[in-house]
Design a protein around this nucleic acid. Structure first.
Length: 647
RNA sequence: GCCGGCGUAGCUCAGUCGGUAGAGCGCCUGACUUGUAAUCAGGGGGUCGCGAGUUCGAAUCUCGCCGCCGGCUCCA
C-alpha cells in the first residue's frame, strides 16, 4: 500500500503523510524541537519506536521526557546498552532479562566468573564508549522457528525459553552494535546518543525467573535519567537515605543494637530506644482500651500439639524455631499470637451477646527467618506485634473492619504520615483450589472489606489472587519522608482457624454458630515501626517521642545551679530534660545536643539566671533568643501533650 | 538458604611487595570558665571476627566457620 496515510495528532488535527512515514518524521513536521526531545511514540495506543514506519492511518503521539512511559523505554534501552557492553567485554556471557525498574534498570547474565566491582567500572566505561558511537537500536522481525534455531545455536537457552513462552509466530528483536541481539518487544530509543545519564550501581545474585531452584544469575543494577542533573539528584537521595538508615541512626543515637553474641535478628533496646518504644506501646495500649479491645497476655512457649491443631506445624514449620524437649512434651516458641488468643476465646462458652470480642496483645513472636533476609529492625527473628483478633458475628463484620481501618488511619496521622494507600487482596474465585473457606465466606468477607474501604474513604487497589490461603485481607501502605513505600497495617480474615479450633458461640436461636475471625496488626511489628519512624524523622523524633525532650546548657560552672532549677521545672511538667553540667564551651554542648537531635536546648548564663529566663534554641530553627522560663516550659509541655509532629 | 562484597581501637577508617599495627573522633587526667555546631595539653585503649593451614615470619596468602552489607527468595 503506497497510498498516503492520515495521521491524527493528540490535539485532533490530521495530517497526510506518504507511506513509510515514521513517528520521527511526524515529529519533525511539527517542530525541530519536538523531534529532538522525542524518546518514543504512541501509535494507536501502543508504544512504538520513533524509527518504525507507520503501518497505515494512525493516531500518533510523540512522547518526550515529560511522559512516564518515555522514561521506562529509556531505561530499558539503557539495559540493552549494558548488555551490549557486557557481551563486548565478556563474550560468551548468556542473557537473561533486562527490564526497567523504579529509578533504573537491571540486566541478568549467566557467566561462570563473577563480575567484580572493577568489572562494573569497565562495563560502564564501555557503555559510554558505545553510547558515543551513536549506535542505532534496530528492530527486526523473525519467524518464531527460525529465531528459536538461531538463539539455540548461540547457546542462549534462557532466550529460547522466553521465546517459547511468549513469542508470537513472528516476533521482534532488537540489535545494538555488532554483538548484541535480543528477543524483545521494545520499543527503544532510536539510538544510543539519546542516553545521557546513567550509572551502574551494583551486582547481585538473582535466580532465573525468581525461582531458587533454577540457576543463579548475576544481576547488574543501574540507574538512568534523562539529565545529568536528575542523576545527581538521585545519587544525592541515595546518600541521604544512607544517612537516615535506622541502623546508622540507631547506633549514633544510642537507641538499639544487635549483639553478635546473642544472635542475628535479635534486637537490644538501649535506655533511650526502650523509652521511645515504651511511648509507642503506651499509645497503642491506650487506644486498645479506648476502642473496646481487651488486653491479654499469652505464653511465649506452648506445646507442639497446639501448633499441630492450628496448622502452623504443617504450613509454617520452616519459619518456626526448633522444638524444646521438656519432660511432658515438645514445646515451641510462638511464631504467631493467634492460637493463644483463640484459647482464651474458647476457654468458655460464648454468647452472641458478648460479640464482638476483641483480644489484643503486644505479643512477642519468634520466627526463624533465613539468614540472608535479616535487615536491621525491618526483618528480624524476634519481634513484637500489636496483634489483635476479633471474633464476631456476620452482621458485625463490616463495622469491625471499618473500626480497624479508622484505627489504622489514626496511627498514620498520629505519627505524621499523610500519604498512604490500601490494598485489598482477594481470592481467585476458587478456581485453583488453593484457598480455604467457602465461596459464601469469601463473598461476605470481600464485600465487607470493599464496603468498609468506601465508608472510611480510603483509596484502595484490589489485588486479585493475592489473598492468603485462609482469607482475604486489606493492607495499608504508607509513603515516608523519602518517598519510600512501607507495608504497615494489615487486617486479615481467617476462615481456617475457627474451623480447626471449633470456635463457637450460642446464637439468638440457641444453636451453635462459628464466629468470624479477623487478625489485625497496625504497627505490624513494633520493632519495624520503630525503624520506619527513625528513618522517617531522620532521628529527630517529635517532642512527645524524643527520649530527651530538652537539655539545659549552663554557660559556665556558676550557672549549673540555675540550670538544675530549670530542669526541675521541666521535670515537674512531666518533661524529660537533662542538664549538661560538663565544663565545656557552649558551642561544644550545642553541637552534641544537635547531633543527638534533642528538640530544645535551653542555654542559661548570667542574664537568664537573673531574670528567670532561658535562651531557647531549637534543633531546626537555631537560636530563638531569651524567653521567660515559664513561657518556654508551657510551650514544650503543650507540644508534648498534643503529640505535635511539628517542631 | 543462594550469589557477590566486607570484617583492623568504643565509632569512622588508613595499613604498599607477607617483616608481629596507625589516624581522627570518643574515653580518662589536667588546665581553661566559656554566649549558640568541636578549647588546649597529656594519657590509656587492639588475641587485626573465630579456627585451621602455607611460611623462618600472616592484619596481609589458602580453607572452614561466624557476623555484617547489596541483592535473589520470603515477609510483620
Amino acid at each position: 500500500m503506497s497510498s498516503p496515510i492520515t495521521v491524527t495528532l493528540p490535539d485532533g488535527s490530521q495530517k497526510s503523510f506518504p507511506a513509510g512515514t515514521t513517528p520521527l518524521d511526524v515529529a519533525r513536521s511539527i517542530s525541530r524541537r519536538l523531534a529532538e526531545d522525542a524518546i518514543v511514540a504512541r501509535v494507536n495506543g501502543e508504544l512504538w519506536d520513533l524509527t518504525r514506519p507507520l503501518e497505515g492511518d494512525a493516531r500518533v503521539e510523540i512522547l518526550t521526557p515529560k511522559d512516564p512511559e518515555a522514561l521506562e523505554v529509556y531505561r530499558h534501552s539503557t539495559a540493552h546498552l549494558l548488555a551490549a557492553a557486557v557481551l563486548e567485554l565478556f563474550p560468551g556471557t548468556k542473557l537473561g532479562i533486562g527490564p526497567p525498574i523504579k529509578d533504573g534498570f537491571y540486566y541478568d547474565f549467566e557467566r561462570s566468573e563473577p563480575f567484580t566491582p572493577e568489572d562494573l567500572e569497565r562495563i560502564e566505561k564501555k557503555m559510554w564508549e558505545l553510547r558515543d558511537r551513536d549506535l542505532p537500536f534496530e528492530r527486526r522481525l523473525t519467524p518464531k522457528e527460525e529465531g528459536l534455531a538461531k538463539y539455540r545455536a548461540m547457546g542462549e537457552q534462557m532466550k529460547c525459553e522466553l521465546i517459547d513462552e511468549r513469542a508470537d509466530e513472528v516476533f521482534s528483536e532488537y540489535t545494538l552494535g555488532p554483538h548484541f541481539i535480543d528477543f524483545c518487544r521494545g520499543p527503544h530509543v532510536p539510538s544510543t546518543k539519546k542516553l545521557k545519564a546513567f550509572k551502574l550501581l551494583s551486582v547481585a545474585g538473582a535466580y532465573w525467573k525468581g525461582d531458587e531452584h533454577r540457576q543463579q544469575l548475576q544481576r547488574i543494577y543501574g540507574t538512568a535519567w534523562f539529565t545529568e542533573k536528575e542523576l545527581e539528584e538521585y545519587l544525592r537521595k541515595l546518600e541521604e537515605a544512607k544517612k537516615r538508615d535506622h541502623r546508622v541512626l540507631g547506633r549514633q543515637l544510642d537507641l538499639i543494637s544487635i549483639q553478635e553474641l546473642a544472635g542475628p535478628g535479635l534486637i537490644f533496646f538501649h535506655p533511650k530506644g526502650a523509652l521511645v518504644r515504651k511511648l509507642l506501646e503506651d499509645w497503642m495500649r491506650e487506644q486498645y482500651l479506648r476502642r473496646g479491645y481487651d488486653l491479654v497476655n499469652t505464653p511465649h512457649v506452648m506445646r507442639e500439639q497446639l501448633w499441630q491443631i492450628s496448622g502452623h506445624l504443617s504450613h509454617y514449620a520452616d519459619n518456626m524455631y526448633a522444638a524444646m524437649e521438656l519432660d511432658d512434651a515438645r514445646y515451641r516458641l510462638k511464631p504467631m499470637n493467634c492460637p493463644g488468643h483463640i484459647l482464651i476465646y474458647r476457654d468458655r462458652q460464648r454468647s452472641y451477646r458478648e460479640l464482638p470480642i476483641r483480644l489484643g496483645e503486644l505479643g512477642t513472636v519468634y520466627r526463624y527467618e533465613r539468614s540472608g533476609t535479616l535487615h536491621g529492625l525491618f526483618r528480624v527473628r524476634g519481634f513484637t506485634q500489636d496483634d489483635a483478633h476479633i471474633f464476631c458475628r456476620p452482621d458485625q463484620i463490616e463495622d469491625e473492619i471499618v473500626n480497624c481501618l479508622e484505627f489504622a488511619v489514626d496511627v498514620l496521622k498520629t505519627y505524621g504520615f499523610d500519604r498512604y494507600q490500601a490494598e485489598i487482596s482477594t481470592w481467585d474465585g476458587g478456581a485453583s483450589g488453593k484457598y480455604d473457606g467457602t465461596p459464601d465466606q469469601w463473598a461476605l468477607a470481600e464485600s465487607a472489606l470493599k464496603r468498609a474501604v468506601e465508608r472510611v474513604g480510603l483509596e484502595a487497589k484490589v489485588m486479585e489472587d493475592e489473598a492468603a490461603f485462609y482469607g482475604p485481607k486489606i493492607d495499608v501502605k504508607l509513603v515516608d519522608a523519602l518517598d519510600r513505600p512501607w507495608q504497615l497495617s494489615t487486617v486479615q480474615f481467617d476462615f481456617t482457624l475457627p474451623k480447626r479450633f471449633e470456635l463457637e458461640y450460642v446464637g439468638e436461636d440457641g444453636a451453635k454458630h462459628q464466629p468470624l475471625m479477623v487478625h489485625r496488626a497496625l504497627y505490624g511489628s513494633v520493632e519495624r515501626f520503630f525503624g520506619i519512624l527513625l528513618e522517617h524523622y531522620a532521628g529527630a523524633f517529635p517532642v512527645w517521642l524524643a527520649p530527651v525532650q530538652a537539655i539545659v546548657l549552663p554557660i559556665a560552672d556558676r550557672h549549673v545551679e540555675y540550670a538544675r532549677q530549670v530542669r526541675a521545672r521541666l521535670a515537674a511538667e512531666g518533661l524529660r530534660a537533662e542538664v549538661d553540667e560538663r565544663s565545656e564551651k557552649v558551642n561544644y554542648k550545642i553541637r552534641e545536643a544537635q547531633l543527638q537531635k534533642i528538640p530544645y536546648m535551653l542555654v542559661v548564663g548570667d542574664r537568664e539566671a537573673a531574670n528567670q529566663q532561658v535562651a531557647l534554641r531549637t534543633r531546626k530553627g537555631g537560636d530563638q533568643g531569651a524567653r521567660p522560663l515559664e513561657e518556654v516550659v508551657a510551650m514544650i509541655a503543650e507540644k508534648n501533650r498534643t503529640r505535635s509532629v511539628e517542631d
